[in-house]
């Protein structure tokens, strides 16, 4: 693995060396390293690009890292990763994609991640996206995430995209069974001429299922963002979505929350707030000796933390 690939790996997975537990590192379209454990198996798909990750019942306190890095300009790929998580598990899955494009062609990674979560399991899923490179080639990522949360299970999903991705459309579709819970936290920052779209759909099918979608976004310069959150309450359930966004310069953000109650005991709430940084926040930090630019940076960093 070369220096550029190492840097990408550090950015998206915080990895300085090979991680403990199960992992599969995909670099420039090929599997670069893999490790399985007694409870976690990773199998290459036969019919298409991608892997199956199988986690046995009762697997506790184990982790799987599946970072993807692209450092070759002009590479486009479509990858399918399927996660089968058994009953009574407690696992952390860290995915992420780093692109370094120093050429003039588009580099593109489209990933479809499907999660099949059994009963009474807790899954923490972390996904980071990062792009770098000094070429004119665009970095494009279109991640799709499909999640089935089984009875009594809890899925926690954290996605972060802070820099370097020129165009992204993220689609997340989830359905929840009885007593299942889903919490999604998204952090997104765009700048330059970037475009980012985030599309969530959550079906609360089971009795007492619940979800909380939280998005914090900052759009700078000429970038644009679209946030769509749909929650369908099909049973006695609780759903909440929240989009909180800061807009700067000439950026544009649209937030389209949609909640549909198909059951009398569905309790659904959406909140969306978009605005520029409050002038008094900048002034307060300036009274502490920061310049206007430093004050903005502090406020944005804190907001996205």
């Amino acid at each position: 693995m070369d220096q550029i690939q190492q840097t990408l790996l550090e950015q998206i997975a915080g990895l300085h060396e090979l991680p403990a537990g199960a992992y599969n590192i995909r670099a420039n379209g090929k599997s670069a390293a893999r490790n399985t454990t007694a409870n976690i198996d990773i199998i290459t798909k036969e019919d298409k690009q991608g892997i199956d990750i199988k986690i046995k019942d009762n697997t506790k306190k184990e982790s799987v890292h599946i970072p993807v890095i692209l450092s070759q300009t002009g590479l486009t790929e479509m990858v399918y990763n399927d996660f089968y998580i058994g009953d009574n598990c407690d696992v952390t899955i860290v995915a992420g994609c780093g692109i370094h494009n120093s050429g003039s062609q588009e580099s593109r990674h489209d990933g479809i991640h499907s999660f099949f979560i059994g009963k009474n399991s807790h899954v923490k899923y972390v996904e980071k996206h990062y792009g770098s490179g000094d070429g004119n080639g665009e970095n494009v990522m279109n991640p799709t995430t499909i999640v089935h949360v089984g009875e009594g299970s809890f899925m926690e999903m954290e996605t972060v995209q802070i820099r370097g991705i020129d165009s992204t459309k993220r689609t997340t579709t989830c359905d929840l069974e009885k007593d299942a819970k889903l919490v999604i936290t998204e952090r997104l920052m765009t700048h330059g001429k970037q475009y980012a779209e985030s599309d969530f759909q959550v079906d609360l099918n089971g009795e007492n299922s619940s979800t909380n979608l939280i998005s914090r976004a900052v759009a700078k310069e000429d970038s644009r963002q679209l946030f769509v959150a749909k929650i369908n309450g099909n049973n006695k359930c609780a759903g909440h979505s929240e989009c909180d966004a800061i807009i700067m310069d000439n950026a544009k953000i649209s937030a389209i929350p949609e909640i549909t109650a198909n059951h009398l005991d569905a309790a659904l709430i959406h909140e969306a707030a978009i605005g520029k940084i409050a002038g008094e926040q900048i002034i307060k930090l300036m009274t502490l000796g920061l310049t206007e630019a430093e004050a903005e940076e502090q406020i944005v960093n804190g907001f996205l933390k």
Partner: peptide
Amino acid sequence: SVTDRAKFGISFAFQQPVRFKGIK
């Protein structure tokens, strides 16, 4: 500017202090 005065050694405690999301 406000910044320059702050660096000059002037401080100001607001009558209505400002709140921030995410700053500890």
